[in-house]
Design a protein around this nucleic acid. Structure first.
Lengths: 167, 167
DNA sequence: GGCACTTGCTTGAAGTATCAACCTCTACAA
DNA sequence: TTGTAGAGGTTGATACTTCAAGCAAGTGCC
């Protein structure tokens, strides 16, 4: 006789519980930690910092809103609000897209670039201290691979064109 | 001659970059995914669900505010607001601590327990689908161990009594 | 007791996130 | 053309988070 009936959900085993809780705890603590670090040292939350990085890496330091949202894995709405805030800081500027009148570019300003350069060393140090310095090379590799799988699983597997996950 | 000067930060290598971005992407997507799943199916964000779980596991389904905050890895302030909201839903109730008049217990109500029982299967299914089902046993093990290390590193290593991380 | 210091928890304001509604523009076809 | 469906992006209301400030009760010490 099978212990699991058809409508009885497959609960997590003790081992899985431990894994899942370790994951939740680590991500909660690390997220908070980096948010505070950047809020203190750069005056913005972690995800905003990521937006500046995304722009800094792009050609001409600019990206269409939707592209940036995809890069950062956030919704367009969230990005819109975030860019509004960064614009108020003078770190990003919006520019109309010449070829598509609906489109907007987010452009990293010189001032934004400065802020990024100024805060990057401290942030990298924080990431090293909390993350890389504590893991062996093998652990880093394994974790990276696992995370890649998780991320891929939650993205619109098919296209890059249609973006259901941005709802 | 060494390429890294004393004040030049140790930037992330390409390999480290990939690992770190995979981590950020996976956690961002998974966090959003589970928040939406629970908001839709249980009417609360992921972390609130975790609070109910914490209470359900505790003796007499109650925990001191500070203990619950520690369990959930959040600040007391955040917990205070969260419990206020859950109280409004009738899922949690506050109770005075008899032995310490400053103290408060958060108590899971029957109604809160019901909500938890009702939404747990769907949530476990979502976690399995997004996380466990995609990883091999070895990957789960490695990831769990790495996450445990990260979490431990961000906690007040020393005591359980003083809680500097709760600021 | 009286004093200072700490712990436990809450509060309000300001910042950020989410969701649904909305507007404009593009693409495409009748 | 005109219609229409969809894409690109914004907005406002509501919910949640954060931070600093606050208050009341416990603790230690004279």
């Amino acid at each position: 006789m099978n212990t699991a009936s058809a409508d009885e959900p497959r609960w997590l085993s003790d081992e899985e519980q431990r894994t899942w809780r370790a994951y939740i705890h680590a991500t909660t603590l690390l997220d908070d930690h980096l948010d505070r670090q950047l809020q203190r040292d750069a005056g913005m939350p972690h995800i905003y910092y990521g937006l500046l990085v995304g722009l800094a890496e792009a050609p001409r330091r600019r990206l269409r809103m939707t592209e940036l949202a995809m890069k950062a894995k956030i919704t367009r709405s969230r990005l819109s609000h975030a860019i509004a805030r960064l614009e108020k800081n003078g770190w990003v500027r919006r520019e109309d897209c010449p070829s598509d009148k609906r489109g907007q570019f987010a452009v990293l300003t010189d001032e934004g670039y400065e802020v990024l350069m100024r805060s990057a060393p401290g942030h990298v140090a924080a990431v090293r201290q909390a993350f890389f310095d504590r893991l062996t090379a093998d652990q880093q590799k394994a974790l990276g691979e696992a995370m890649l799988i998780i991320a891929e699983g939650l993205q619109p597997e098919g296209a890059g064109a249609d973006l259901p996950w941005l709802r």
